[in-house]
Design a protein around this nucleic acid. Structure first.
Length: 225
DNA sequence: GCCAACGTTGGC
DNA sequence: GCCAACGTTGGC
């Protein structure tokens, strides 16, 4: 345990959203939402099962949950804001390894909890950064286990609905393998035809996404240009 | 700073 | 199950 408290996938806490625009007049007025305290106490929805997610998404991403051939290795991408936890932070960590806490999105959690296996290779992407880019490669050093930062009321990742007996959120351990020879920036990724279907570009703003073997090779080739 | 995209909540 | 409100992500 290294005692760090950072959340790799930062939950921006201080920022307040701007007020919503006025709704068109045709929309009927709706009762006010309950007070935050009441909402916080409400039951969360059940998480979608990975198979459901795969079906609903209709894309190729469900494949990352399928059984593997012996020795099959799969590929992933994780995002982190370097101001919160950077590639350099990872390489400076004990054993170049850290627990990847802070994932608080069900789809991302499913990829992390049910998809990631020991030895899988993972791109490390800097978001909210200049440049926004894949900057390194790490690997899954430990498969999913409960994200204990969700149990700590003092931690920004606290979630009262998650308990040690029935954890909602999970983390893996990631170990730095190699820095990219050069950063593969978001514009480079967007320009590359081979990467047009990449989950990074296609599904929401997930902090954990699958990468196909073809995409993996394409990104690595971009770093060598 | 802006805002599109998307997830979640919860009244109905 | 629908959908308005609202919160967050994260590129621009």
């Amino acid at each position: 345990m290294d005692g760090e408290r950072s959340m790799k996938r930062r939950v921006v806490s201080a920022k307040k959203s701007a007020p919503r625009k006025k709704l068109p007049a045709k929309k009927k007025p709706v009762a006010k939402r309950p007070a935050p305290a009441k909402r916080a106490a409400a039951k969360p929805k059940l998480a979608a099962e990975p198979s459901q997610f795969a079906t609903a998404a209709g894309g190729p991403w469900g494949k990352c949950f399928l059984p593997r051939k012996a020795g099959e290795r799969r590929y992933w991408l994780v995002k982190s804001e370097p101001e919160v936890f950077s590639w350099d932070d990872l390489t400076a960590a004990t054993d170049r390894t850290t627990h990847w806490d802070g994932v608080r999105n069900f789809a991302a959690r499913n990829f992390l909890r049910d998809g990631m296996k020991h030895g899988d290779q993972v791109f490390f992407y800097h978001s909210m950064a200049n440049p926004q880019a894949i900057v390194g490669i790490c690997e899954v050093a430990r498969e999913a286990y409960p994200d204990y930062t969700a149990f700590d009321p003092a931690h920004p990742g606290f979630d009262a609905e998650s308990s040690p007996a029935k954890p909602t959120w999970f983390m893996v351990d990631l170990r730095a393998v190699d820095k990219m020879p050069s950063p593969v920036t978001l514009p480079m990724i967007k320009r590359a035809k081979a990467l047009a279907q990449m989950a990074l570009l296609r599904i929401g703003r997930l902090s954990v996404t699958p990468v196909t073997e073809r995409e993996w090779r394409a990104v690595r080739a971009l770093a060598k240009e």
